[in-house]
Design a protein around this nucleic acid. Sequence first.
DNA 1: CCGCATCCCTGGGGATACTG
DNA 2: CAGTATCCCCAGGGATGCGG
Lengths: 127, 127
Amino acid sequence: MVTKRLLKGLPEDADLRRADSLAREIFSDVANKWALLIIEALGERTLRFSELRDEVEGVSHKMLTQNLRMLERNGLVDRKVHPTVPPRVEYTLTGPGRGLLAAVDAICGWTHQHLGHIEGARRRFDA
Amino acid sequence: MVTKRLLKGLPEDADLRRADSLAREIFSDVANKWALLIIEALGERTLRFSELRDEVEGVSHKMLTQNLRMLERNGLVDRKVHPTVPPRVEYTLTGPGRGLLAAVDAICGWTHQHLGHIEGARRRFDA
DNA sequence: CCGCATCCCTGGGGATACTG
DNA sequence: CAGTATCCCCAGGGATGCGG
């Protein structure tokens, strides 16, 4: 049984409460469209900033930097700056980042698996 | 190898492109904080609207209904209305919904597993 | 109890321009 | 090329109230 407790939990002891609030914070960071798409785009590869922007459909310059900073801050991506001119910055998933990648892959797989069911459900609902 | 293609893909043929755009749409629906927290809250249980609101920390009435509608529309949750007074509405994950639950559980597990690493990474980054 | 509609406001996020 | 900063606008989302 996985330790969940992202849900409303009883206070219990102080350390647990800190851990929970931290967990919820991380979850909120990570559980958003752009972050997950960036992780999926990186996969096992190393990509430059501009490559990422090309790879992630519809992401704006700002959202990309913002999310990359966040992911870097949480230790999910590694940012390597090459001191050349013009600059060259490369992003790679860290070990923990690749751990999350597995979950994202699962979601992507799930999505494609249920395309048909979902399309049907929508049609029924919209009627 | 999972069929991904949530990333910027070459057009190829028309049907594939439709499927891709649908997949991205679903992904955008599903890859958001509240939707995932609701799925996690439901788990294998059946919950009433008000129970869900109590269970999901910080969700507003509006966000909850909105996301529940969306999940219902996509066939991930089943909504059962008991014609009593006062009304009683119960939400349950469908089969596909439980499929997604597995992925969400994975994310929750991942989060707790890496709390320490992330906390450290943050401290280093913020310096 | 549940859910819709309305109002209102904040801040998310796009576009643009400038620096290294 | 990559990143930061600034401006600005619209929609996300909170609060409230009514209806079933």
